[in-house]
Design a protein around this nucleic acid. Sequence first.
DNA 1: CCGAGATTAGACAGATCGGTCTAGTGGCGC
DNA 2: GCGCCACTAGACCGATCTGTCTAATCTCGG
Lengths: 190, 190
Amino acid sequence: MRTPARQRLLDAAEELFYAEGVHTVGIDRVIEHAGVARGSLYNAFGSKDELVRAYLQRRADRMFARIEAAVERQESARDRLLAIFDAQADWLAAPTYNGCAFARAAAESPPDGVAIACSREYRSRLIALLTTLATEAGAPQPADLARQLLLLYDGTANAGRYERTTIAAVAKAAASAIVELALDPQSTRS
Amino acid sequence: MRTPARQRLLDAAEELFYAEGVHTVGIDRVIEHAGVARGSLYNAFGSKDELVRAYLQRRADRMFARIEAAVERQESARDRLLAIFDAQADWLAAPTYNGCAFARAAAESPPDGVAIACSREYRSRLIALLTTLATEAGAPQPADLARQLLLLYDGTANAGRYERTTIAAVAKAAASAIVELALDPQSTRS
DNA sequence: CCGAGATTAGACAGATCGGTCTAGTGGCGC
DNA sequence: GCGCCACTAGACCGATCTGTCTAATCTCGG
């Protein structure tokens, strides 16, 4: 156990912050749940803000990796463009799902807070990925298609807080319709 | 000025809560901005939670009224179904727009908090309205279409916090595509 | 074996929070 | 004119928050 403190703190922070909100969960809750002393937190991160930043960045990396894995799992350009909704469906199926971590953290954050910055970065990464996939799928206006799909992705994450049973299927159906019309505006549906 | 206190409190609460977040803004900020004594707030509302509830309910009523007005402004069933995005475009155009008040308040709220309850109610009202409009438009599965459109509505409200310039047009285009395919699955696009 | 750095428990400070209470003031109906 | 009620200003309370500090303990490299 050479460096368990920082790791355990991150795990505890992610669990509590995501489940209950960044603002609601205090330092004491985090260190108690991590089984770590108060000083260790400030030694490792310096402030709560930095802990929040580390939590969001690690989560962004993990989510992005899973999205990319879902993309790689598909072969056709069209399926790859829709793969982000497969990853999202997995998250929605988890019993601990509680909406988009970034959207929720950003909602609590002042406009210049760390959560807003992390959300912006995550969003731009998603837009970049979706735009690339849309281009590869031959969309006439890949940037617009990417933004449309991101809207759906955002909305699904939010709606998932209220009903989690069938919303993923609804989202994917809507995404398919958008992609369909963007790629084959003139043809009939299969 | 027979009853200005409650009114001024609600106005101040809406302004501050929406701009900066329910949790961030304390009682002192609200009463200072309203120019009202501390006791008046507790005389009128009893607690901060009740002030939040009153704020969200009044906002829900106003937003819903404007959505319905936008619906009435349209004649064709298809345009009425899309009218909610016209109302949203108006909100997005306001310089003070800061995302969906309900989603943001809910993000700060514990699962059993008032904000979650208010959000649920607002969402169900929207779903009911959209389902009715989808039925009138002749959608084969009006409930699914309504949920798809609500996803887009949610996502647009969230994305509007980050880019407000052209997102409304992107959302309406996506909504049009969804409606198009839901109502005329076989025909070609106009 | 010993010393440096990480870690521990916990007291402590300063600020802010929601909420209560009191005393005084204003206007309006009767 | 008088009483009633809303309102005001502000002190006050207990809880909670982030962050600092101290002193003891543990671990591990040299």
